[in-house]
């Protein structure tokens, strides 16, 4: 049976992890490669690296990091941040990334999704969508959730699927950082609407939140950062709890 995936997300700036990471005795908790290996050993199913300060100058640094992760880590990983062209993706896949995640660049130029899935296959194209519920309507936001658009979340999700996205990473801006649970209603609606996997993001605070997002939100995967980085939720403990609730996980 296909299992539900647990996906730690690492924010990267100039080749280093940002936000403190403090969950185990690590030689260098700022080194994404060391952390990635640790997460792979602890049972993470997949990893996401998000370049939060993606600029032309530090692109080389990001490529070096991706290369090192690919060299040393034996689980799949996605790279996102500042990707806006076929050439960008070509470079990252050549460095060994398994998937790339695009966000604002896809909203600005939706054809990019078609171009990437035609050239590299939809399996490596993740479209990340940041959305916020405003007066009962879910609107897509850009630039890390700061700039609102008039695009409806569900219309956009349908469109990215049709254009060839292989997966959707949905972050609810209403829930992100609250540690009060995932946006399960919107997630369930998304899952019902499209036929590609959905990664839930934003709001993880307790083990129960993961149970809920898999059961009520029908998410295929759940992404979180701080609850993993600070050891608030050990991955093994989380997976055992999920299994006890009848949710299929890799243990």
């Amino acid at each position: 049976m296909l299992t539900k995936r647990i996906v730690p997300c690492l924010d990267i700036k100039n080749g280093r992890t940002v936000k403190g990471v403090n969950f185990v005795d690590l030689r260098d908790a700022g080194d994404p490669v060391v952390l990635a290996k640790q997460y792979a050993d602890l049972g993470a199913d997949e990893l996401v690296f998000l370049d939060i300060a993606a600029t032309l100058e530090n692109r080389k640094t990001m490529h070096d990091m991706v290369l090192k992760v690919a060299e040393q880590v034996n689980i799949p990983f996605t790279v996102g941040g500042g990707i806006s062209s076929v050439a960008d993706v070509d470079d990252l896949l050549h460095c060994g990334a398994d998937k790339v995640s695009i966000n604002s660049s896809a909203v600005k130029r939706p054809e990019l999704i078609n171009e990437l899935s035609d050239k590299f296959g939809s399996q490596c194209v993740v479209v990340a969508i940041d959305a916020k519920e405003v007066d009962g309507e879910w609107l897509v936001h850009l630039a890390g959730g700061t700039i609102p658009t008039e695009l409806n979340l569900f219309d956009w999700a349908k469109e990215v699927e049709q254009r060839g996205a292989g997966e959707i990473l949905f972050t609810s801006m209403n829930h992100d950082g609250t540690k009060a649970g995932f946006a399960n209603k919107a997630l369930a609606k998304l899952s019902d609407l499209v036929n590609i996997p959905i990664i839930a993001s934003g709001g993880a605070g307790t083990i129960q939140h993961f149970v809920d997002t898999f059961k009520e939100g029908i998410a295929d995967a759940a992404l979180a950062a701080s609850v993993f980085h600070f050891g608030e939720i050990p991955i093994l403990e989380l997976k055992e709890a999920l299994q006890n609730k009848g949710i299929p996980v890799r243990l």
């Binding site: 539900k4 939809s122 292989g166 036929n195 996997p197 295929d220 890799r250």
Partner: peptide, 10 residues
């Protein structure tokens, strides 16, 4: 089913 199948299976 969702297509592609993506993830860990037995």
């Amino acid at each position: 089913v969702k297509v592609p199948q993506m993830g860990w299976n037995t």
